[in-house]
């Protein structure tokens, strides 16, 4: 029988306790156990970045982390980013305004990665943004709208617009 373990994870502010298979990865835990399907799985080998979530504030590829490793930690997924009243996070707002998404599949991971990046580097150059985004693959946009959105969100978060 499959090896299981009980874990307790804080997800988007809510505490969840579940019995999970030890081989279950965090992405599948979020998607299939917690039904938070906003986290998308694009490659399952840590290359595309679509499944990126925040674990204790750090950007993590949830396909490369086991659910049991999240035990006792705080996870933020795309569903936890907007305000309770539905107001979009400045990064989400900037993606919308700058046409930073088309099909929307890579978007969750892109937005989360940008949120984490701007925490570390609140005033990046375009070149720094492009380097930061190089861990997330988008097939639709050609990245230009995403780069523009990141620069604009940085301004907003710095209180400059």
């Amino acid at each position: 029988m499959a090896d299981t373990r009980e874990i307790t994870v804080t997800i988007n502010g809510e505490t969840e306790t579940r019995e999970v298979e030890t081989r279950l990865n965090l992405a599948d835990f979020l998607r299939h156990e917690l039904e938070l399907t906003g986290t998308h799985v694009g490659c399952e080998h840590g290359a595309c970045g679509a499944c990126t979530v925040l674990v204790d504030g750090e950007a993590v590829r949830s396909c490369l982390m086991l659910a049991v490793q999240a035990d006792g930690h705080e996870v933020t997924s795309i569903e936890g980013l907007a305000a309770a009243d539905g107001t979009l996070h400045p990064v989400q707002q900037a993606f919308w305004k700058n046409h930073g998404l088309q099909c929307g599949f890579c978007t969750s991971g892109m937005v989360i990665s940008v949120v984490a990046f701007l925490e570390d580097n609140p005033d990046p150059s375009e070149a720094e943004v492009r380097t930061a985004l190089s861990g997330n693959i988008c097939r639709c946009t050609g990245y230009q709208g995403i780069v523009a959105a990141t620069l604009e969100a940085a301004e907003t978060l710095r209180g400059e617009n």
């Binding site: 998607r31 299939h32 039904e35 938070l36 399907t37 906003g38 986290t39 998308h40 799985v41 997924s77 795309i78 569903e79 980013l81 907007a82 979009l88 989400q92 993606f95 919308w96 305004k97 046409h99 998404l101 099909c103 929307g104 599949f105 978007t107 969750s108 937005v111």
Partner: peptide, 21 residues
């Protein structure tokens, strides 16, 4: 015009095949 598709997709509320249970 800003896209009408986007708020749903930006907040993780898209509905792709694997999201249907």
């Amino acid at each position: 015009v800003q896209r009408m598709e986007d708020p749903r997709l930006l907040t993780g509320h898209g509905r792709f095949v694997d999201d249907i249970h």
